[in-house]
Simulated assay, not measured.
Amino acid sequence: MIAKKVLLVGNFGVGKTSLIRQFVLNEFSEDYISTIGVRVSTKIVNLNDEQIKLLIWDVAGTKDDEKVPKAYFLGASAAMYVFDLNREETYLNLKNQLETVRELSGLKDILLVGNKKDLLTLNEINQVKKIVEIPIDLITSAKENENVEDAFAILAKQSLK
Protein backbone atom coordinates (compact mmCIF):
# COMPACT_ATOMS: atom_id res chain seq x y z
CA MET A 1 0.00 0.00 0.00
CA ILE A 2 1.21 3.47 -0.79
CA ALA A 3 0.32 6.63 1.12
CA LYS A 4 -0.36 9.92 -0.65
CA LYS A 5 -0.82 13.35 0.88
CA VAL A 6 -3.66 15.25 -0.78
CA LEU A 7 -4.91 18.74 0.02
CA LEU A 8 -8.33 20.35 0.17
CA VAL A 9 -8.03 24.11 0.00
CA GLY A 10 -10.34 27.05 -0.57
CA ASN A 11 -12.04 29.92 1.24
CA PHE A 12 -13.63 29.41 4.65
CA GLY A 13 -17.13 27.93 4.68
CA VAL A 14 -17.08 26.38 1.19
CA GLY A 15 -17.61 22.83 2.46
CA LYS A 16 -14.12 21.27 2.47
CA THR A 17 -14.65 19.59 5.84
CA SER A 18 -18.15 18.47 4.81
CA LEU A 19 -16.80 16.86 1.63
CA ILE A 20 -14.17 15.01 3.65
CA ARG A 21 -16.68 13.87 6.31
CA GLN A 22 -19.02 12.61 3.59
CA PHE A 23 -16.18 10.76 1.85
CA VAL A 24 -14.48 9.29 4.94
CA LEU A 25 -17.40 8.80 7.36
CA ASN A 26 -20.49 8.85 5.08
CA GLU A 27 -22.05 11.56 7.20
CA PHE A 28 -23.13 15.17 6.83
CA SER A 29 -23.79 17.80 9.47
CA GLU A 30 -25.46 21.19 9.06
CA ASP A 31 -23.33 22.50 11.94
CA TYR A 32 -20.50 24.75 10.80
CA ILE A 33 -17.28 24.23 12.68
CA SER A 34 -14.38 26.28 11.40
CA THR A 35 -11.17 24.34 10.82
CA ILE A 36 -8.22 25.88 12.61
CA GLY A 37 -4.86 25.23 10.98
CA VAL A 38 -5.11 21.85 9.35
CA ARG A 39 -6.95 18.58 10.08
CA VAL A 40 -5.77 15.29 8.60
CA SER A 41 -8.14 12.42 7.77
CA THR A 42 -7.32 9.11 6.14
CA LYS A 43 -9.14 6.71 3.88
CA ILE A 44 -7.94 3.74 1.87
CA VAL A 45 -9.10 3.67 -1.74
CA ASN A 46 -8.64 1.04 -4.41
CA LEU A 47 -7.43 2.25 -7.76
CA ASN A 48 -6.21 0.04 -10.61
CA ASP A 49 -5.87 -2.98 -8.31
CA GLU A 50 -3.73 -0.91 -5.96
CA GLN A 51 -4.54 0.29 -2.46
CA ILE A 52 -3.80 3.92 -1.76
CA LYS A 53 -3.97 5.41 1.70
CA LEU A 54 -5.10 8.99 1.17
CA LEU A 55 -3.83 11.37 3.83
CA ILE A 56 -6.39 14.13 3.33
CA TRP A 57 -5.22 17.49 4.61
CA ASP A 58 -8.17 19.79 5.31
CA VAL A 59 -6.44 23.18 5.19
CA ALA A 60 -8.21 25.94 7.11
CA GLY A 61 -10.16 28.28 4.88
CA THR A 62 -8.92 31.81 4.40
CA LYS A 63 -9.96 35.11 2.98
CA ASP A 64 -8.18 36.19 -0.20
CA ASP A 65 -5.74 38.41 1.65
CA GLU A 66 -4.69 35.80 4.23
CA LYS A 67 -1.70 33.57 3.71
CA VAL A 68 -1.69 29.83 4.39
CA PRO A 69 1.60 28.45 5.78
CA LYS A 70 3.69 26.92 2.97
CA ALA A 71 4.51 23.96 5.24
CA TYR A 72 0.94 22.64 4.78
CA PHE A 73 1.59 22.24 1.06
CA LEU A 74 4.97 20.51 1.19
CA GLY A 75 4.98 16.91 -0.02
CA ALA A 76 1.45 17.01 -1.44
CA SER A 77 0.77 14.64 -4.33
CA ALA A 78 -2.52 16.27 -5.39
CA ALA A 79 -4.85 19.11 -4.43
CA MET A 80 -8.54 19.97 -4.70
CA TYR A 81 -9.59 23.61 -4.67
CA VAL A 82 -13.17 23.91 -3.42
CA PHE A 83 -15.44 26.91 -3.89
CA ASP A 84 -19.05 27.58 -2.89
CA LEU A 85 -21.38 27.78 -5.90
CA ASN A 86 -23.71 29.90 -3.77
CA ARG A 87 -21.12 32.54 -2.68
CA GLU A 88 -19.76 34.68 -5.47
CA GLU A 89 -16.79 35.92 -3.43
CA THR A 90 -15.43 32.34 -3.34
CA TYR A 91 -15.15 32.03 -7.13
CA LEU A 92 -14.47 35.50 -8.52
CA ASN A 93 -10.69 35.25 -8.11
CA LEU A 94 -10.13 31.56 -8.91
CA LYS A 95 -7.30 32.01 -11.40
CA ASN A 96 -5.16 33.79 -8.80
CA GLN A 97 -6.17 31.39 -6.03
CA LEU A 98 -5.20 28.35 -8.11
CA GLU A 99 -1.91 29.97 -9.08
CA THR A 100 -1.12 30.52 -5.40
CA VAL A 101 -1.84 26.85 -4.65
CA ARG A 102 0.38 25.80 -7.57
CA GLU A 103 3.22 27.99 -6.29
CA LEU A 104 2.92 26.75 -2.71
CA SER A 105 2.52 23.06 -3.57
CA GLY A 106 4.58 22.71 -6.73
CA LEU A 107 1.63 20.86 -8.27
CA LYS A 108 0.68 21.51 -11.88
CA ASP A 109 -2.89 20.17 -11.92
CA ILE A 110 -5.35 21.31 -9.25
CA LEU A 111 -8.82 19.74 -9.22
CA LEU A 112 -11.42 22.55 -9.24
CA VAL A 113 -14.66 21.68 -7.45
CA GLY A 114 -17.81 23.76 -7.06
CA ASN A 115 -19.65 22.61 -3.93
CA LYS A 116 -23.14 23.11 -2.45
CA LYS A 117 -24.97 22.21 -5.65
CA ASP A 118 -28.04 21.45 -3.55
CA LEU A 119 -28.53 25.18 -2.84
CA LEU A 120 -28.95 26.20 -6.49
CA THR A 121 -31.13 25.42 -9.48
CA LEU A 122 -29.60 24.06 -12.68
CA ASN A 123 -30.08 27.49 -14.28
CA GLU A 124 -28.21 29.19 -11.41
CA ILE A 125 -25.36 26.65 -11.69
CA ASN A 126 -25.10 27.40 -15.42
CA GLN A 127 -24.87 31.13 -14.59
CA VAL A 128 -21.97 30.41 -12.21
CA LYS A 129 -20.23 28.39 -14.94
CA LYS A 130 -20.45 31.44 -17.23
CA ILE A 131 -18.91 33.71 -14.59
CA VAL A 132 -16.05 31.38 -13.67
CA GLU A 133 -13.24 32.06 -16.12
CA ILE A 134 -11.73 28.56 -16.00
CA PRO A 135 -13.22 25.07 -16.43
CA ILE A 136 -14.81 23.57 -13.32
CA ASP A 137 -13.80 19.91 -13.01
CA LEU A 138 -16.73 18.77 -10.87
CA ILE A 139 -19.91 20.10 -9.25
CA THR A 140 -20.61 18.46 -5.88
CA SER A 141 -23.00 18.41 -2.96
CA ALA A 142 -21.56 17.13 0.30
CA LYS A 143 -25.07 17.27 1.79
CA GLU A 144 -26.60 15.02 -0.88
CA ASN A 145 -23.39 13.01 -1.41
CA GLU A 146 -23.37 13.95 -5.08
CA ASN A 147 -20.08 13.48 -6.95
CA VAL A 148 -18.15 13.28 -3.66
CA GLU A 149 -16.70 9.82 -4.37
CA ASP A 150 -15.89 10.94 -7.92
CA ALA A 151 -14.00 14.00 -6.69
CA PHE A 152 -11.81 11.93 -4.39
CA ALA A 153 -11.32 9.24 -7.05
CA ILE A 154 -9.97 11.91 -9.41
CA LEU A 155 -7.79 13.25 -6.60
CA ALA A 156 -6.42 9.75 -5.93
CA LYS A 157 -5.62 9.32 -9.65
CA GLN A 158 -3.86 12.68 -9.72
CA SER A 159 -1.82 11.71 -6.67
CA LEU A 160 -0.27 8.85 -8.66
CA LYS A 161 0.99 11.05 -11.51
Rank of each mutant, 00 (worst) to 15 (best):
I2Y: 11
K4R: 15
K5L: 12
V9M: 01
G10F: 04
G10E: 05
N11S: 15
G13S: 15
V14Y: 05
V14I: 07
V14R: 02
K16D: 09
T17L: 13
T17K: 12
S18E: 05
S18D: 04
L19P: 02
L19I: 06
I20N: 02
Q22P: 06
Q22S: 14
F23I: 10
L25R: 15
L25A: 12
N26I: 08
N26L: 07
F28L: 08
E30R: 13
Y32S: 10
Y32T: 12
Y32D: 07
T35N: 11
I36T: 11
V38I: 14
R39S: 06
R39C: 04
R39G: 00
R39I: 02
V40L: 10
V40Y: 08
V40F: 07
T42R: 14
T42M: 11
K43P: 05
V45N: 07
N46M: 06
N46P: 00
L47Q: 08
L47D: 02
L47T: 08
Q51K: 13
Q51P: 02
I52G: 01
K53I: 13
K53F: 06
L55V: 06
I56S: 08
W57I: 04
V59A: 00
G61V: 04
G61F: 09
T62S: 13
T62Q: 15
E66F: 08
V68K: 12
A71E: 12
Y72H: 13
F73R: 01
L74C: 05
L74V: 11
A76G: 11
A76N: 02
S77D: 00
A78K: 06
A78F: 10
A78W: 05
A78L: 12
M80S: 00
Y81W: 08
Y81T: 00
V82W: 04
F83K: 03
F83A: 01
F83P: 04
D84K: 03
D84L: 03
L85H: 02
N86A: 11
N86D: 04
E88M: 03
E89D: 11
T90Q: 06
Y91F: 15
L92D: 09
N93D: 09
L94F: 13
N96Y: 10
Q97H: 13
Q97A: 14
Q97S: 13
L98C: 05
E99P: 01
E99W: 05
T100H: 00
T100L: 00
V101R: 00
L104R: 02
G106P: 05
G106T: 12
K108G: 02
I110K: 03
L111F: 14
L111N: 03
V113F: 06
N115Y: 12
N115S: 14
N115L: 10
N115E: 09
D118T: 10
L119Y: 09
L120R: 09
T121S: 15
L122H: 07
N123V: 09
N123D: 13
I125E: 03
V128I: 08
V128Q: 00
K130P: 04
V132F: 07
E133H: 07
E133W: 03
P135Q: 01
P135G: 03
I136Y: 06
D137H: 10
L138N: 00
S141V: 10
A142H: 01
A142R: 02
A142C: 01
E144S: 10
N145R: 14
N147H: 13
N147T: 06
N147I: 09
N147A: 09
V148G: 03
E149N: 14
D150E: 13
D150A: 12
A151L: 03
A151D: 01
I154H: 01
Q158C: 05
L160K: 10
L160R: 12
